[in-house]
Structures are given as structure tokens and as C-alpha cells.
């Protein structure tokens, strides 16, 4: 059963249409990776699902209900979390305040429990509790962003290029964490990545977007090893594909 399904979604910003008849499924408790060249509408897809970009037509079915056209705060309440690529923490607030803010709308004692939960996942944040989020390193900041999203105990988490601008080693750590979210917490993941190879390696399903249209939908491995698509769109060289 698919936890999220897009049906012929046309979306964009104002009059600028970016997505054309985009349809795909995001299976439950799996990692689905959206890849594609720059400007192909990967981020816009996430924003359309979350109600930030305008959806002109089509359906976005989550848990059996059409959520297309709902405002973002209503979508957040339905159990979808979205980790934006940039500005994904409150830079001027401390780590503690960030986590507290993330529990907005929950009772005080529940927030405390949930903060404790995510701190167990990210012990490094415990040492930074009173530090302003803006002073964290790139990796720590990304962990805080994920922690913030986790406070709401989402069923589906969407990541927009979570490894962009991170050192390779830290990027791998973040992808590790995302795998853990699937394996240990049973969270459905929708991942947009510019680092196609690494992302498809941890992914179960791959979707290739080109020019706002779905060009490929299938197994992540299949997309990674596709003889033409990888070379044409993802910058994978022959040797890498063969691996």
C-alpha cells in the first residue's frame, strides 16, 4: 500500500508551471529517491506535496485522503514532515529553543519526552543545547533540522538535498541517519538528492524527473544501473554505473 501517491499533479509558482502531470507512488516504510538534473522540479515536487508551491490540478493522496490544496500547517498536522534545504533551523534561537519550538501545539510534558527521544538519536545535540543554532557546524545543523522534524513523530519525512554543502564524510553520516529512520523507526522517506549515486544506493525506489516530468519510476538499483538514464541525466560515468 502506498503511503503517498501523486496523480497527474500540475504545479508551480504563480503562473510559472514547473511540474507537468507528475504521477508516482511512495511506498510505506521505504526510501524513495527523486533524482534529476538541476531545475527539473525535484524541490518543487516536495513543495507541492507540502502545500508551499501551488497545485493547479491533480491529486496528492496521503493516507487515503487528497491533501492537494491544503495549507502547510494542516499538512504538517497530518504527519508529514519536510526538512528544507536551507534555513531549516531557527538560527537565532538556541538548540533547546529550536526543539521546544518544534513541539509547537503539543502539551509541555509530551514535548519534554519527545525532545529526550530525539536527543538519544543525536547525542551531539545534547552538548550544544544552549548554543545558538546559527553557530553549529553544517553537519550538526542538519542533524538539528532532522531532530526538529522528528519531534512531531511524522509518518512521512521529506528531505530536500540534506547533504548539499556538507563534507563527504558527514554527508554519508546524514544518509546513514536517514536509513536508520526507515529501518528503526519505520518512517516513510521521500528524498531529493543531487548526489544521485549515494542516494540511490540507500534507496528502495528511484524516480527520475526531467523538465518537470517523470521519466522513470522503478527500483532504485534499476535506475542506478540503467544503461542510458544514468549517463544522460545523472552524471554517472560508465565505470560508476558498472559498479
Amino acid at each position: 500500500m502506498a503511503s503517498l501517491r501523486l496523480e497527474k499533479v500540475n504545479a508551480g509558482y504563480g503562473r510559472l508551471q514547473i511540474l507537468f502531470d507528475v504521477s508516482f507512488e511512495v511506498p510505506e516504510r521505504k526510501i524513495t529517491v527523486i533524482v534529476g538534473p538541476n531545475g527539473s522540479g525535484k524541490s518543487t515536487t516536495l513543495k507541492a506535496i507540502f502545500g508551499i508551491a501551488n497545485v493547479y490540478s491533480g491529486k496528492i493522496i496521503f493516507d487515503g485522503e487528497n491533501i492537494a490544496g491544503l495549507p502547510p500547517h494542516r499538512i504538517a498536522k497530518r504527519g508529514i514532515a519536510y526538512v528544507p534545504q536551507t534555513d531549516n533551523v531557527f538560527a537565532k534561537l538556541t538548540v533547546r529553543e529550536n526543539l521546544k519550538m518544534a513541539g509547537y501545539g503539543f502539551p509541555e510534558d509530551q514535548i519534554r519526552d519527545r525532545v529526550e527521544e530525539v536527543l538519544e538519536m543525536f547525542p551531539i545535540l545534547r552538548e550544544r543545547m544552549n548554543q545558538k543554532a546559527g553557530t553549529l557546524s553544517g553537519g550538526e545543523r542538519q542533524m538539528l533540522a532532522i531532530a526538529i522534524a522528528l519531534i512531531r513523530r511524522p509518518k512521512l519525512m521529506m528531505f530536500d538535498e540534506p547533504t548539499a554543502a556538507l563534507a563527504p564524510k558527514i554527508a554519508l553520516e546524514i544518509l546513514d541517519i536517514i536509513q536508520k529512520l526507515r529501518d528503526e523507526h519505520g518512517i516513510t522517506i521521500l528524498l531529493v538528492e543531487q548526489n544521485a549515486k549515494k542516494a540511490l544506493e540507500i534507496g528502495d525506489k528511484g524516480i527520475l524527473l526531467v523538465g518537470g516530468r517523470v521519466v522513470f519510476e522503478g527500483g532504485a538499483r534499476e535506475l542506478l544501473e540503467h544503461p542510458d538514464l544514468g549517463r544522460m541525466y545523472l552524471g554517472l560515468v560508465g565505470e560508476e554505473v558498472a559498479k
Binding site: P71, P72, H73, A81, V83, D87, N88, Y104, I148
Partner: peptide
């Protein structure tokens, strides 16, 4: 205050920015 500092993120966290 959250939406003053970062409206996009506040919205993501379930704040009705409007």
C-alpha cells in the same frame, strides 16, 4: 516569533503563518 524569524520553517512545524 518563530514565523517572524523563519516563516517557511514555522509553517513546516505546523504554525499557521497566515
Amino acid at each position: 516569533r518563530a514565523s517572524i524569524e523563519n516563516p517557511a520553517l514555522a509553517q513546516v512545524l505546523g504554525v499557521n503563518v497566515d
